[in-house]
Amino acid sequence: MSEAEHIVVMGVSGTGKTTIGRLVARKLHRDFIEGDDLHPTANVAQMRAGVPLTDAERLPWLRRVRDAMSEAAADGRSTVVACSALRASYRDVLRTAEGRVRFVHLAVPRAVLEHRVEHREGHFMPASLLDSQLATLEPLGADEDGVEVPVSGRAGLTVRSVLAALG
């Protein structure tokens, strides 16, 4: 049996991590893990109030995401994960999951991000935190197993771009 592979669809709020991640998971016949569902209740309340999380507050959440990937790998399953993974140090935590961990950074122009986060409903992340997320975002390093994919207006095109970039 081959080693499990995890594709972490990453980026700031509003990039379409969940939408693209679910579609990529469906195309690849993999489990989908929504990283936002693994946030402790206190983190969600803090972000909903417009207060950015500190690195120390993010760490338990990142470990939960990593552990979910490792649990899937222990069962022989590969996954697609939606997780912001904004800093290299956050990705370092995720990379310790069992199996191969690859990153897909969804790159979206700021104006599009602003429009998306201002007009979406039912998400705890307010538009006021977009600047904080953009300031925190560190691009993938040359030593990281990942790709950056510009997001087109259509999810299907973006999914095809993701799959092509991953090979």
Rank of each mutant, 00 (worst) to 15 (best):
G50M: 04
P52D: 01
P52M: 01
P52N: 02
L53D: 12
L53S: 12
A56K: 14
A56F: 11
A56C: 03
E57P: 07
E57C: 08
R58C: 11
L59Y: 15
W61P: 13
W61A: 03
L62Y: 11
R63H: 15
R63S: 00
V65E: 13
V65K: 11
A68D: 09
A68V: 09
S70N: 10
A73C: 07
A73M: 06
A73Y: 08
A73F: 12
G76R: 08
G76F: 05
G76P: 02
G76N: 10
R77I: 11
R77V: 14
T79E: 11
V80K: 08
C83M: 12
S84M: 08
S84D: 12
A85S: 15
L86E: 00
A88F: 09
A88M: 02
Y90W: 09
D92L: 04
D92Y: 05
V93P: 02
R95S: 15
T96K: 15
A97C: 08
E98G: 10
G99A: 06
G99N: 09
V104H: 10
V104E: 08
H105F: 13
L106G: 02
V108H: 10
V108L: 14
P109R: 11
R110T: 12
A111G: 06
A111C: 04
V112D: 11
L113N: 04
L113M: 02
E114F: 00
R116M: 07
V117Y: 01
E118A: 15
E118Q: 15
R120H: 08
E121R: 14
E121A: 09
E121K: 12
E121N: 03
E121W: 02
F124W: 04
F124V: 04
M125H: 08
M125P: 12
P126N: 06
A127N: 03
A127P: 01
S128V: 06
S128M: 01
L129W: 05
L130D: 02
L130C: 05
D131P: 03
D131F: 03
S132G: 05
Q133V: 04
Q133P: 14
A135H: 05
A135W: 00
A135D: 14
L137I: 09
E138T: 06
E138R: 01
E138W: 04
P139L: 04
P139N: 07
L140Y: 01
L140K: 01
L140I: 02
E144D: 02
G146S: 07
G146K: 06
V147M: 08
V147C: 04
V147E: 07
E148I: 15
V151P: 10
R154Y: 00
R154E: 15
A155F: 00
A155K: 13
G156L: 12
